[in-house]
Structures are given as structure tokens and as C-alpha cells.
Design a protein around this nucleic acid. Structure first.
Lengths: 233, 233
DNA sequence: TCATGGTCGATTGCTGACAATCGACCATGA
DNA sequence: TCATGGTCGATTGTCAGCAATCGACCATGA
């Protein structure tokens, strides 16, 4: 078994990516990103390069590169010669995020519907079923994850890598907001009714309907979040 | 004349923004970006950190940070432990870029129309007039720049900073493609007819019409570029 | 009491040097 | 002729240290 590792490339081509050596810069970027998205580091919290370097056991330069990467995703902000901080998200930010997301998902749903094939149908149906099952079990934690997975799968099925890149940036900021404010609490009872039309249209290859349903769903979700912020302060 | 350069800052208070100290990292990023977008560095061309550091008279670490920034914009690509190269753009890339752009501009046009006010109207009309004038003069160089300015202005008027960020990424990649393949040559005779409906709808505050015209314009432009690539090889 | 100016610690900005890795080349032998 | 293994130059990956800058604190004096 161990000896077979040498032949991994020929016998298990899927695991080839695992062999690729990951520079510490990338590892540090991922670790820091997870710390932020998981809510360990709250929005507005100060970050010092030296402390992070110590925590991750790498050099300050490496941490610096990672911070610069995350600043491009608007997860951290830099005040020159002063310091880094986890990004904060106000009402204007939420409006920007959800209007932009509605546009990206509208395109993704249309493209996914137009390019749909048997493999894509099986994959999308599988993710949908897992999401709906979690909703019926009222398993909030799993449902929230599955919700993200479903939307992300649609974007992946669009076949547009740049669209996926930009969508992931938006998704990260939503996760940052949710995990820092405990504002998740989706209405699981209506989640199935809200997502079914989107998935059905994509599975049926109806790009126009998929685009409309998707855009509308994200916009109404955005209004729900904004209303919640306005109410809770 | 030369001596007056020293007093630029005090005699021209408008250049206060120029007083803001720009870290060399940012200067290097901008300079490198311009070299790529201007076509001095062609797609696929190898970039070595040491050579760039020597050229810009900064350290390798600074150049490295700049390269990482540009890699997030897909202007350069890094092969670990091997080297950097200016990004190449193939047919799939062009499809991704123009479908994504159509979606972003669709949203921008709608938002710009919905938020339109007197200041915005004056600004948009001014940019439009400059563009149309260049078209009538058959001034290709100015027309190409004005074309970008017009589209960018609409996105800026949307009031969505994240939308602007993502649009600028797409715009940069289009400039990279155009300036490296001399594929500009827009049809100036129809440019006015193609852009008028978009601008008119935005000025009139008709978001739905602006969105439709904008999306359609970019998609047809994308098809034109793809056809040109297929024909010219 | 309040404005002013200076000092100091903390943090980022930047650099040069060393280690790790890769791709090309070449010698070797069947 | 071709496969094999090793060597070497080139390039990126990483690090520790010094310089530049900022914000807070404090002493001073009107």
C-alpha cells in the first residue's frame, strides 16, 4: 500500500493535486482565511504581522504576502504604516454584496442550464437532495453549509472560471458577515420552496427561467438580511 | 521650468492626493500593470523577479508582492519554483470574460439608471459627447479610450464599489487582449448607434431598458471578438 | 484648563542573503 | 539510438534585521 504511492499518478489520477507541494504562503493564506471566516477573528479586530507570524510559525514576510492576498478579497484592510484589521461590513456593504451576488448568480444559473448534461444533472440533484434533507431534519448547521454548497455548485456548473472566482469572493464576505453576527437562522420551512424553482429550471435546461428565479431569490434574501440588520441594529 | 518641479506640491494644492505617501509596493504594482496593459510585455512572456527588481530599482520582495497582487487579477500567472509569466488569453478566456462582463454591465446600467441625478447626468453626458466626437473624427486611439471611459463611468455611477472592483478586473483583461493582438479596430460608424440606447435609457432613469441594452451590447461585442479570433487564428 | 511640541513604543515598509526547487544539459552504458 | 541518472545554473521560497512612519502619552507653559 505504501509502496504504491510511487504509482499514484497512474492508478489514482484524482489525487495528483494532493502531491503538489504547497508553498507556505498559500498555506498561511488559507489558514488565516479560515480563521476569519470561522469567526475566530471578528470584524474590526486588529491583526499584527508579528503575532500572526508567531502563531503560524512562519516568517513575517510570508504572513505579509498572505495578508495582501486577503486584502484583494476585502477580508482584511490595511492602513499604511499603522496596521491590519479584519474587514467590517456595514449596511452599504451588504447592499453591494447582495446586488452583485444576484447578478453573478443570475448569469451562473443561465449558463448552467444551457450547458446542462447528465453528469451535471446527477451532481446538482445530489447536492439539492442533501440540502433539502437537512432542511426537513431542521439541522440548521448542515442546512447552512448545504445552502452554500448548492449555490456554489450551480456557479461551478456554469463552466466560467472567472465567474466562480468572483462569486467566491462574494460568498466569503457573506460568510464573514454571517459567522460574526450569528445572522444565519434561515427560514428552513420555506427554503425548499425557494430553491426548488431554481434547481428545476436548471435541470430542465430553461436558462431564462433559471436566471430569473435565481436573481429574484438572491435579491429577496438580501432584503431579508438588510431588514434584519435594520431591526437588530 | 525644471526647477519648479520642486515646488509642485506647495503651489498646486489640488495635488494634495499626490502627497499621500505611496508605498513602493503599490507604485511597483501600478508600473508593472501599465507595462503589461500597454503591451510592452506580451502574453506568455516570462517575468523574473530579479530582472524586474533591477528595472524598477526596488527589492525583489517588493516586486514579489506586486506580482502576487497582479496574479489575483489574472494578469500574471505563477508556476511554483519555476517562474512568472504574463497571462495568455485563449478562446475560452474570451468567452468567460465577455459573458461575465455582460452580467456586470447589466447590473451597473440598471443601478446607474435608478440612482441617476443631475450631477450624474452631466458627467455621463460629458463622457458620451467626448466618445461620440472622437468617433465622428474617426480618431481611433481616442475613441478606444473614450469607449472604455464611457463604460467605466456607468459602472462608477452604479455606486457599488465591489461591482466596480470586479468590472475593472474584467476591463484589464480586455485591455491586455486588445493591446497584445491589435484587435481593437472597433466599427466607429456604428459605435454611436450601439451606445446611444444605453446612455439614453440611463439618463432617462429607465433601469430595465438600460440593463437590457447594456447586456445585449456587450454580448454582441463579445461575439464580434470571438468571430474575429476564429477568423484570424 | 487647554493648546503645543516632543518623545517613545509599536507596527509596517523594505532590503539583502540563504535555502529549496525546478528544468535543461550531459555523460554513461546497454 | 535511446533510456537513465546526475550535475548545474536559474528562479522562486523563506527568513531575520534595519529603516520609516504613525499614534499615544506626557511635559511644558500660557
Amino acid at each position: 500500500m505504501i509502496g504504491s504511492l510511487e504509482f499514484k499518478e497512474s492508478t489514482h489520477p484524482m489525487s495528483l493535486t494532493a502531491l503538489k507541494r504547497q508553498p507556505a504562503e498559500q498555506l498561511a493564506t488559507e489558514a488565516l482565511k479560515e480563521s476569519i471566516l470561522a469567526g475566530d477573528l471578528k470584524p474590526g479586530e486588529r491583526l499584527t504581522e508579528a503575532a500572526l507570524a508567531d502563531q503560524f510559525a512562519v516568517s513575517r514576510g510570508t504572513v505579509r504576502t498572505a495578508l495582501h492576498q486577503l486584502s484583494r478579497d476585502r477580508l482584511v484592510v490595511l492602513t499604511p504604516y499603522t496596521g491590519w484589521a479584519v474587514a467590517t461590513i456595514d449596511r452599504q456593504d451588504l447592499w453591494e454584496i447582495y446586488t452583485l451576488r444576484s447578478s453573478l448568480e443570475r448569469l451562473a444559473a443561465r449558463l448552467a442550464a444551457e450547458r446542462m448534461n447528465d453528469d451535471g444533472r446527477a451532481r446538482l440533484a445530489g447536492v439539492r437532495d442533501a440540502f433539502f434533507a437537512a432542511c426537513e431534519r431542521a439541522d440548521v448547521a448542515v442546512a447552512v453549509d448545504s445552502d452554500f454548497s448548492l449555490h456554489r455548485t450551480i456557479v461551478e456548473l456554469s463552466g466560467n472560471r472567472r465567474l466562480l472566482d468572483q462569486y467566491l469572493m462574494v460568498e466569503q464576505q457573506i460568510r464573514l458577515f454571517i459567522n460574526s453576527t450569528y445572522a444565519s437562522a434561515p427560514n428552513l420551512s420555506v427554503a425548499i420552496a425557494h430553491h426548488s424553482p431554481i434547481v428545476d429550471a436548471i435541470l430542465a435546461g430553461d436558462g431564462e427561467a433559471a436566471a430569473g428565479h435565481s436573481e429574484h431569490h438572491v435579491l429577496s434574501e438580501g432584503e431579508r438580511v438588510l431588514a434584519m440588520v435594520d431591526h437588530a441594529g
